[in-house]
């Protein structure tokens, strides 16, 4: 799933390590999310969105799921 994590992180000058520590996952998980290798759970998506002060839909791109339907 596409997301804006990398873009948001760069805009706020936050490292993957810092984001990972803030949302309680490993740095590798953040890398996988940014590379679209892994889809975050609802809980993790919520934590990331909350960390950036945005909604889940603003951080994650659900258009692929909408197209599948």
């Amino acid at each position: 799933m596409k997301s804006r994590i990398h873009e948001l992180r760069r805009a706020r000058k936050i490292s993957q390590e810092e984001l990972a520590a803030a949302v309680g996952v490993t740095r590798q998980t953040i890398t996988s999310l940014e590379c679209e290798k892994y889809t975050a759970s609802l809980v993790l998506a919520y934590k990331i969105a909350k960390y950036f002060g945005m909604t889940i839909e603003e951080v994650f791109d659900f258009s692929e799921i909408d197209e599948q339907e």
Binding site: A20, V25, S32, S41, V43
Partner: peptide, 11 residues
């Protein structure tokens, strides 16, 4: 704790 409970690791 993070390494044991990380959702990607669990998957």
């Amino acid at each position: 704790y993070v390494s044991e409970n990380d959702e990607r690791e669990r998957l």
